[in-house]
Structure formats: C-alpha cells, structure tokens
C-alpha cells in the first residue's frame, strides 16, 4: 500500500506543477496586462513604473521563476478590484462551494446506489424499468431548467424556500437538488451496469451455493465488487463538478462560491484572481483524483496488494 500511496502522491505533485506552468503561460499569452487592466490615461513614467514594479521587462523565464517563487511562498498577488491578496479572496469563496459540492455528492450517493442496485436486481420487472425511466429523464433535464423550475414552484408560487444566499439549511435544498439531478441519473446507470456485470460473475453463484440470503449476496458480494467501478465514476463526477459544474447553479442562486467568483473575475478582467482561482480549482481536482485513487485501492485488494 505504501508504494502505491507514494506513486499517487508523486503523480499529483507532477500534475499540479504542470497545471501551474500551463496557467502561467496561458495568462502571459492572453495579452499585455498593462494595456488590459489600466488602459487609457497612463503617463509614460507611470507606465514604466508599473512595468518595473511587476518586472514585466524581464525575460519570460525570469518571470516564470518569480511566479513559482511566489506560488511556493503562497503569494499570488493582489486582486485588482479588492486590493486584497487573491489567496484571501478565493479562500473565503472555497468553503461555500465545498459545502454545496459535499451536499450534492452526499445526496447523489444516497439516491443513486440504492436505485442502481434495485434496477439491477429487478432488471426484468417493472421496478427496474421505472428506475431507468426516471434516470433517463433526469439525464435529459439540464441543471438550470431544474433550478428555474424549482424556483418557480417552491419560491415564487408556494413561497416555501429561499432563493438567494447560503445562510440556512433551507438555502441548500434547491441548489443541492439542482446540482445532483444529472449526477443521480448518471450514477444510477453506472451502478446498475456495474451491478449487472458483477451479479453475472461466478463468485455470486458460489455465494448462493453457500446458502447466503439474497440481501447478503447482492450487498456484500455484489456491491462490494461493483463499488470498484462506482468509486471511479464518483471520483470523476466530483472532479468534474469541482472544475466547472457549479458555475451555473451558483450564478442562479447567487451562491457566494468560487464558480461565481471566477465568472466575475473573467468578466472584469481581474487576472490575479482568475489565475489563482484556476490554480485553486485545479488543486481541488487533483486532490479529489488522488483521494479517488486511494479509495479505489481500499476497495480493491488487487490494486492495494498488487504493487509490492
């Protein structure tokens, strides 16, 4: 297990380094920062002072080293708008996003696993078909349609749920459901397929031949093996959500999260925030992937023990 963990960590660090580098290059090539963020009305002296201050006359390589030095010591510069360190600006937006993400993942797993297992076990009866119809429907409805529909019903007509903000538990209900919709549909189908695969295997027959009850056969022997596939899908989904999936939902519900922050930063060209925001999201994605790899190894002894 130790060599496996070491490998996972090395891969994560290498990926992060590559992302930092690409982010640096991408922002450098997006245009001259002086022109873009200060624009008109700058004297030649003022302009030169800024160029000196930001060391923009240095070679790209020197700038890159300065960027890496800053990154390693945790300095990613000041936001153009707030004049505060971008680390601070991004950090206070991370937690609300993470909360929403965790709530959605929790809801997704709580619904999808049982539904997927049911759909697999009762694949030939109406129960299985019903589950799959619901799953397909969920897959076909875009998150923003679901969100707007819920706002219309539960906030505008019934006036039960708040729309804007993240202060109370009630605030979580609609954004969480809106974000989970597509995920539930996808994960249910994956769970069903993984379970169908596993339930056809020889060791399931062995388990039944021992005299085990169906419940134990399906959950312990079936789901225990299907979990290997399901975990990797969940990992991919969480990573996908962390990367971009929450922007739309956060905008609709004015959720003070990182997705909304990044969209605003891009619109008003607050490059330091954008740059660090991208790095922070990338960091989250890489961390989630590393955790997925570890969970994968925990579920599958062949991975865990096969490396030694």
């Amino acid at each position: 297990m130790i060599p496996y963990l070491a490998r996972v960590l090395v891969k994560a660090v290498v990926t992060l380094f590559a992302i930092m580098t690409v982010t640096f290059i991408a922002t450098r090539f997006s245009g001259n920062p002086i022109d873009t963020f200060l624009g008109e009305g700058l004297t030649t002296e003022g302009r030169q002072a800024l160029i000196d201050y930001f060391q923009l006359d240095q070679s790209l390589w020197q700038q890159y080293l300065a960027f890496l030095r800053g990154a390693l010591s945790g300095e990613f510069g000041l936001s153009f708008v707030d004049r505060r360190p971008v680390t601070e600006v991004v950090a206070e937006r991370l937690w609300p996003s993470a909360q929403l993400l965790l709530a959605s993942i929790g809801l997704t797993i709580a619904i999808s696993l049982p539904l997927g297992v049911l759909a697999a076990v009762y694949r030939k009866s109406w129960i299985g078909s019903a589950v799959m119809v619901v799953a397909f429907a969920g897959y076909a409805v875009p998150a923003f349609v679901l969100a707007i529909g819920m706002i219309l019903i539960f906030s505008y007509w019934l006036d039960w749920l708040p729309v804007v903000g993240s202060s109370t538990a009630l605030h979580f209900i609609m954004p969480t459901i809106a974000m989970s919709g597509v995920l539930v549909a996808a994960l249910t189908r994956f769970t069903r397929n993984a379970m169908l695969d596993v339930l056809g295997q020889d060791f399931i027959r062995t388990a039944r031949a021992k005299g085990l009850g169906e419940m134990r056969v399906v959950l312990r022997h079936g789901l225990g093996n299907a979990a290997i596939t399901v975990i990797s899908v969940i990992g991919l989904q969480i990573a996908g959500l962390a990367a971009a999936g929450s922007v739309v939902i956060e905008s609709i519900f004015s959720w003070p999260g990182i997705g909304q922050l990044l969209v605003n930063a891009a619109i008003i060209r607050d490059y330091p925030v954008l740059q660090f925001g991208v790095i922070a999201v990338a960091f989250a994605v890489v961390a989630i992937n590393a955790l997925t790899d570890i969970a994968y190894a925990l579920a599958d002894p062949r991975i865990r023990l096969g490396q030694n």
């Binding site: 060791f203 062995t206 031949a209 021992k210 005299g211 022997h221 225990g224 290997i228 002894p301 062949r302």
Partner: peptide, 25 residues
C-alpha cells in the same frame, strides 16, 4: 432451500480463478 445449500449439499465449480470473491479475504 438456503438452509440446505452449503450445509447438506455443497458445490464446487469449474473456474477457480473467478469462483471466489476477489475483494474478500
């Protein structure tokens, strides 16, 4: 029937490679 299986009548199968659950000791 379940009380019978594995207790009074037991069974072994052709494929030893796939007849044991890979994630259980």
């Amino acid at each position: 029937l379940r009380a019978l299986r594995g207790d009074r009548i037991a069974m072994i199968f052709q494929e030893p490679m796939t007849s044991l659950n890979p994630v259980m000791t």
